Simulated assay, not measured.
Amino acid sequence: MEKRCSEYESGACKQVMLPVQDSLELLSGKWKIPIIIALMHGVKRFSDLSREIPKITDRMLSKELRDLEMNQLVSRHVYDTFPVTVEYTMTEYGRSLRPVIGALAEWGMNHRQRIMQD
Rank of each mutant, 00 (worst) to 15 (best):
L18W: 10
P19Y: 12
P19C: 09
V20D: 06
Q21V: 14
D22H: 09
S23C: 10
L24T: 07
L26N: 03
L26A: 08
S28T: 00
S28K: 00
G29A: 09
G29C: 11
K30Q: 15
W31I: 01
W31M: 01
K32P: 03
I33C: 09
P34M: 08
P34H: 06
P34W: 03
P34R: 03
I35A: 03
I35K: 02
I35H: 05
I36T: 03
I36G: 02
I37E: 00
L39V: 02
H41Q: 14
H41K: 11
V43R: 08
V43K: 10
V43L: 08
V43S: 08
K44L: 13
K44R: 14
R45V: 13
D48P: 05
L49D: 01
L49C: 06
S50W: 01
R51M: 15
E52R: 05
E52P: 02
I53V: 00
P54F: 07
P54S: 15
K55H: 15
K55G: 14
T57Q: 02
T57P: 01
T57D: 07
D58H: 15
R59P: 01
L61H: 06
S62I: 12
S62V: 10
K63N: 04
K63E: 03
E64P: 02
E64I: 01
L65P: 05
L65F: 12
R66P: 05
R66E: 13
R66W: 14
R66Q: 13
D67A: 13
D67F: 07
L68Q: 00
L68R: 08
E69I: 04
M70T: 11
M70I: 12
M70H: 13
M70F: 14
N71K: 15
N71S: 15
Q72P: 04
L73H: 01
L73P: 02
V74E: 02
V74L: 00
V74Y: 01
R76M: 09
R76P: 00
R76H: 10
H77P: 03
H77Q: 13
Y79R: 02
Y79N: 01
D80P: 12
T81I: 08
T81H: 06
F82T: 14
F82M: 08
F82Q: 11
P83N: 09
V84D: 13
V86I: 13
E87F: 10
Y88D: 04
T89Y: 04
T91R: 06
Y93W: 14
R95T: 11
R95C: 11
S96K: 04
L97I: 02
L97T: 04
L97M: 08
R98D: 10
P99H: 12
V100W: 09
V100H: 11
I101W: 03
G102R: 01
G102Y: 05
G102F: 08
G102E: 07
L104E: 00
L104Y: 09
A105F: 01
W107V: 12
W107C: 12
G108Q: 07
G108C: 00
M109N: 10
N110W: 06
N110V: 07
N110I: 05
H111D: 09
R112W: 05
R112N: 04
